[in-house]
């Protein structure tokens, strides 16, 4: 029995390192292959710096919007269930079910110059496709369920007795939200936010279509990396990949902490 479980562990570790560890090491090895000064120069590559700035802009807009939407939708679905909220509960998973490239095509259909809303928006002077708004919309769309899918089960589990007790103690709905509800779901929401962050930074397919992938203008970091590989500039691509890898490790660390805290909260059993 012990030997079997040891074997199983070795197999799992080998499988994970073959899939994840070795490719990651390869990225590091490639990025450092030309020495420190080359790396320093590559880190200052104009197109890549602009791409990082664009990705940062998208994160700053899309992540907070998804926090608001995710928590709001969760409260609606769990605390005020109705036929409409059930529909939302199902629809919210759509972005997980369909390929990002299809999301991109749908957005193009809607917002392109000859699309459903494109002409009306153009009259108002707004352009969605091939610009920041389009990239933001695509990013929000693909990461839509990530906060609420963490928050909904927790809201269901803790029930509404704490909130109702607070009401009998004289607390207003806003006060109850901030002092009871938000405090209870904070770690689940934080976990959802880190997932959203990772998804927004890493998104490729949907953003590729709506942004038009114009260097120096609408290229996010992932698109920039892709473009460098396509243009036989793989060293620069690996440097970009190295940066993404660092972000991923940071996000993973935050996820690990948030998950640990969340598990602990759940294990504070009240049976």
């Amino acid at each position: 029995m012990k030997k079997q479980s040891l074997l199983l562990r070795v197999l799992v570790l080998a499988y994970v390192s073959a899939l994840l560890g070795i490719p990651l090491l390869f990225v590091f090895q490639q990025a450092f292959s030309h020495g420190w000064s080359e790396l320093w120069t590559a880190l200052h590559d104009h197109a890549m710096v602009l791409a990082i700035l664009l990705t940062a802009k998208v994160v700053v807009v899309a992540v907070p919007l998804n926090i608001f939407f995710g928590i709001g939708a969760s409260l609606w679905i769990v605390r005020r269930p109705s036929r409409l909220s059930h529909v939302l509960d199902v629809l919210i998973d759509v972005p997980l079910a369909i390929s990002p490239i299809v999301v991109g095509l749908i957005l193009e259909l809607a917002y392109a110059q000859n699309g459903w809303f494109g002409p009306a928006l153009a009259k108002l002077g707004w352009r969605v496709m091939f610009s920041l708004p389009g990239i933001v919309i695509a990013s929000i769309f693909v990461s839509l369920p990530l906060v609420s899918r963490q928050v909904i089960p927790l809201l269901r589990e803790i029930g509404d007795h704490q909130e109702q007790t607070a009401a009998t103690l004289g607390a207003s709905p806003i006060r109850i939200f901030f002092t009871i509800t938000l405090r209870s779901i904070a770690w689940a929401a934080a976990y959802g936010v880190t997932l959203t962050l990772a998804r927004v930074i890493g998104e490729y397919g949907a953003v590729l279509i709506v942004s038009g992938n114009i260097a120096l203008l609408t290229q996010t970091l992932t698109l920039n990396i892709g473009a460098n590989f396509d243009n036989f500039n793989s060293y620069q691509g690996f440097v970009g990949a190295l940066l993404l890898a660092f972000v991923s490790v940071a996000v993973l660390l935050v996820i690990a902490v948030a998950r640990h805290r969340l598990e602990r909260k759940r294990h504070d059993s009240f049976a």
Binding site: I158, G159, Q162, Q164, T165, T168, R183, S184, K265, F270
Partner: peptide, 14 residues
């Protein structure tokens, strides 16, 4: 202004 206690006591866990 009524005191109310639930069966599960609904302690504010945090």
């Amino acid at each position: 202004h009524i005191g109310f206690c639930f069966q599960d006591y609904a302690p504010f866990r945090h």
